[in-house]
Amino acid sequence: MASTTKEEEVLIELQDVWKIYQLGEVEVPALRGVSLQIKKGEFLAVVGASGSGKSTMVNLIGCLDTPTKGTLYLKSQDVTHMSESDLSSLRGKTVGFVFQQYNLIPTLTAYQNILLPLELQEFDDEEAHKRAEELLKLVGLGDKMGNLPTQLSGGQQQRVSIARALAANPEIILADEPTGALDSVTGKEVIDMLHRLWKNEGKTIIMITHDHHLAQYAHTRVELKDGQIMTVQKTVHEKEMKLYHRGD
């Protein structure tokens, strides 16, 4: 917590961001003038009804997509006018993704999946191998190095994908319903892991969730409705959160 109060650096800034999908003749506005500042070290939960534009917003933040209108700054760089290639580099260095469906490469082992971002960032071999191994241990899968994704449970796959998201040591972790495909116990383990990353390593975490209980872990809660931000509120104090958990 201490880190967030000290660091006031704005990591991500959205200024009147619009995303309009074109479905044939019809225009579908998924985001309608969203403005938001996310500071370094924040743990943000994005909530809202299905179709409210959560994924759209997070994909824009992760530079997977570009806004139709408005400006988006990532580490004070205007990404709306960046080339594909620069976007990929920036994305690879600063953002780690955790998806609902894990999205591991099916033909690569757990270890190779974690190695992939390191190879893309051209880490030297020795360092990359060391780091991949450490990360697998960190997520508690030191003994599953050679397993293909199909040889892992859902929770294990999600842990591999968290390790992969961490590999290139990005400042930001974007998680789109990371527990959506997991049972509540495993889901909580995954959230705990993200929570530890936020607390111990000062990662900035942006997590989409439908689960209000899980949203309690976050530091700030952003609620979307019909492509617009309804509320931005600090969530319950950490102390209270523990109490809340006890009663859970």
Binding site: G62, L64, E84, S85, L104, L116, P117, L120
Partner: peptide
């Protein structure tokens, strides 16, 4: 296609 999307999400450039 999906794998290509994943690769790009984790930092693969077009040329990769």
């Amino acid at each position: 296609t999906k794998e290509i999307g994943i690769m790009k999400a984790i930092g693969a450039r077009n040329q990769d």
